[in-house]
Design a protein around this nucleic acid. Sequence first.
DNA 1: TTCGGTTGTGCAATCGATTGTGCAGCCGCG
DNA 2: CGCGGCTGCACAATCGATTGCACAACCGAA
Lengths: 355, 355
Amino acid sequence: MKPTQKQTIYDIAHKIGASPSTVSAALNGTWRSRRINEKTAESIIELARQMGYSVNLQARGLRTARSGLIGLILPEHNNRFFSDLSQSFTLEARARGQCPVIIATQRDPEAEVSTAQDLMAYSIDALFIAGAADPMRVSRLCHAAQLPHVFIDQPCPDAPSVITDNEVGARRLTEIILSTMRPHPQPDRNKVYFIGGDARLHASSRRIAGFRAAINAHSGQCEDSQIIACGYDPDVALAEIIALTHRLGGLPAGLFANSINVFEALLRFLGELPEAELRAMSIGCFDYEPYGELLRFPVHMVRQRHRQLVRRAYELLDQRANGNVLVTVEPELYPAHGPGPFKGAEPDATAGSAQ
Amino acid sequence: MKPTQKQTIYDIAHKIGASPSTVSAALNGTWRSRRINEKTAESIIELARQMGYSVNLQARGLRTARSGLIGLILPEHNNRFFSDLSQSFTLEARARGQCPVIIATQRDPEAEVSTAQDLMAYSIDALFIAGAADPMRVSRLCHAAQLPHVFIDQPCPDAPSVITDNEVGARRLTEIILSTMRPHPQPDRNKVYFIGGDARLHASSRRIAGFRAAINAHSGQCEDSQIIACGYDPDVALAEIIALTHRLGGLPAGLFANSINVFEALLRFLGELPEAELRAMSIGCFDYEPYGELLRFPVHMVRQRHRQLVRRAYELLDQRANGNVLVTVEPELYPAHGPGPFKGAEPDATAGSAQ
DNA sequence: TTCGGTTGTGCAATCGATTGTGCAGCCGCG
DNA sequence: CGCGGCTGCACAATCGATTGCACAACCGAA
């Protein structure tokens, strides 16, 4: 039990009186097709175990031009969605016998590109890019190196991508907000307001479309004033919420927070108000945060299906999807206080439609 | 701009009419010590850039027996503390020109060991293990392979380790709970209760010690009944909290939640109670959760200094700390609603002391 | 002119695996 | 007996870099 020096197939070959190629075949499982005698193979495998041998994957990788490494680039670890994604990615990669390499680039396009290059220098077998800051640059790099790659969450027109179905998610969320909303006598306050996000971005624009569709189907008319796409900065969102409340002379009956940041801003604002007022509101958040379920007032949430996103991405790889395939995955709706300790009145049954 | 095939130093050497060794020296910066003419080196570097050359790190790694990869094994990505750690680790590794490889093992000791072996097969240069399920086994493996390694958060007697100073953290947290606690006429309810954790584990036992020290310094006597180390299962913790409340005939004046799980259980329980009662309590959590700051009642929290933990761990590596060095890092106290946006009515002035 | 020292570069071994090919035995069949 | 075909393995090239060493060319000094 003291293999001080690294063991190689040459050491094994020497000890057992066979050739390195025989040892290699025995150990990597190709011995059958190389017509190595079963006994020989077995004894080699046994000896290798005793010696505590372990392949040098760099040597193998050099020879085979593959590495068994599979990369995932994402903006930050420190984020519910991306850490969920890391988790799913790790499980999936290991189930396939690959070694996941997950690197966060802090939303910096330069870091994104240089990380991609680094990973390519290690001959990674494929690259996943989640929430890319600059999809095109990364994609160009990968194409130049003929590296299979898939985008997740933030799509790229030049490469296979998997994203959440933002429109459907927003529609569902809006529907449940509407269905749990308490009517308010003042017309302007008897509405749902969509707060946060950037209408020029793909994701936000789809969500706004879903929001509009739900409102139109419900009350016939969604007004532009109901959509406040003020970006993702919590402070800006907070200011907008305060302004809105002033305009309306009080809180609206429904609020659609278009990101966890906005929701946080909302909490900061709502924290100062009497609890009864909050309980009267219907709040939805397009993002998932477990603590949302533990608040003292109901919050409906939408969560991206990280497991599915990763699975679909792998499928695209397996199919060698080449062009600009775009796969969408429906998100999951977390209705407020479903089976939780809160037994508070659910006005009607629409929440049941959440798959 | 279409380097379809991978470029090698041989290609460059051929194109420029030099030898591969010269190219190698020029590109990896050792050309000076190999007395390569500066002009030659520069033109090689320039050509390499034009050709879009990138080293094959597997080849380099094979030759040099190093890889530039540095591993971090942790229980799960999906956790505030560990994702903070991932973040800091990534930054630190990249600042040192290394490539971080972070793998989550789902708290499974087998996965931990096999992951360590996999990483070693890639010739990683060093290994960090955070929150190890079975430190000794991993450490033995590393020692056998002469792989530098450091434990974080969960120490190992056989290897250098960096952990949070649980005792000091618990003392500070208890002190602030005490100082913001409203006196209660009933003696049993005029106390802080410590809930959760396993007294047999290193971390919990140090925290209990800190808790006791603070109580003793403040009121002279900490009773055993104040310590309910019922494990980390939220359901069990919830049951204990309920039982305690029954025993006391109401909520105690202070609570020390010894993990985020316990805190979550607490929230589930408190969610059903009238808000005024909560605001009367003084609650502390030995873990950090940003949403804790957004709740409608004050919560003091303690947060591990992930950045420092990683830095100290790297320092131990740099010093080639061999034996059982144990470094501790003081955690950070997040007093409830210090400089936050809450200006709302605090029942009395004790909260003001919550510096 | 010869010699020692410096410059600048090339040669070839090496890291540890994989893999195409060669070939010695042996068997059975005609 | 001869030959084709199978079995079971070894040889050696190869992947792409790094690195110890050899060596030619040149220069100045003796």
